[in-house]
């Protein structure tokens, strides 16, 4: 009854993809303000960049065209040290391991450009960043809270939110 279904095809030539990744790394580095190699064995990623927030869509386009997966978008509250929020994007290629971490600083009340037009994965990731850190994304089709209640009046992962025990209690 059950007939064998087709087998998956093999991935493209590994040598080619590695060459592609070097070209990609240098073109992203040109767009970024700074770039560094990281020791994968220790940090778990190969490259880290600090980019201007305005150049994020262009950088994303490079990764998208090279077939990189957007693994996550998250944020770090650095207002105490640097006065800004820091967005963190990680890209990785599924056929050959090559993880890039892209940082972009943005003021807490400023808008960051959304990358949902390329990666729909960013839709929920950006909503979560907005939900937890209050960073807004311009061009997002449906920017609203995702994990916290819709009528919440706080951003829970901001450092000045305090500890969980300090959360507003329902009376």
């Amino acid at each position: 009854m059950s007939k064998p279904r087709a087998e998956a095809e093999h991935d493209s030539d590994e040598h080619e993809t590695e060459k592609m990744s070097r070209i990609l790394g240098s073109s992203v580095a040109e767009l970024a303000e700074s770039s560094e190699h990281a020791d994968y064995a220790k940090y778990g990623y190969h490259h880290v960049y600090l980019a201007n927030i305005e150049s994020i869509p262009e950088i994303t386009r490079h990764f998208f065209d090279a077939g990189y997966l957007l693994e996550m978008v998250t944020c770090q509250d650095r207002r105490d040290d640097a006065g800004t929020m820091r967005l963190v994007y990680t890209f990785n290629h599924l056929a050959h391991l090559d993880r890039h971490l892209v940082h972009a600083d943005v003021a807490a009340d400023a808008e960051a450009p959304s990358i949902t037009s390329l990666y729909q994965a960013a839709d929920w990731f950006e909503r979560e960043v907005y939900d937890m850190y209050g960073v807004r994304f311009s061009g997002h089709p449906n920017l609203k809270r995702i994990l916290l209640p819709e009528d919440a009046d706080f951003y829970a992962l901001r450092k000045d939110f305090g500890r969980i025990e300090d959360a507003p209690q329902e009376s």
Binding site: L143, K144, D151, D153, F154, D160
Partner: peptide, 8 residues
């Protein structure tokens, strides 16, 4: 803490 009211 203040945020915008209900989202669209």
């Amino acid at each position: 803490m203040s945020t915008e009211p209900n989202p669209e």
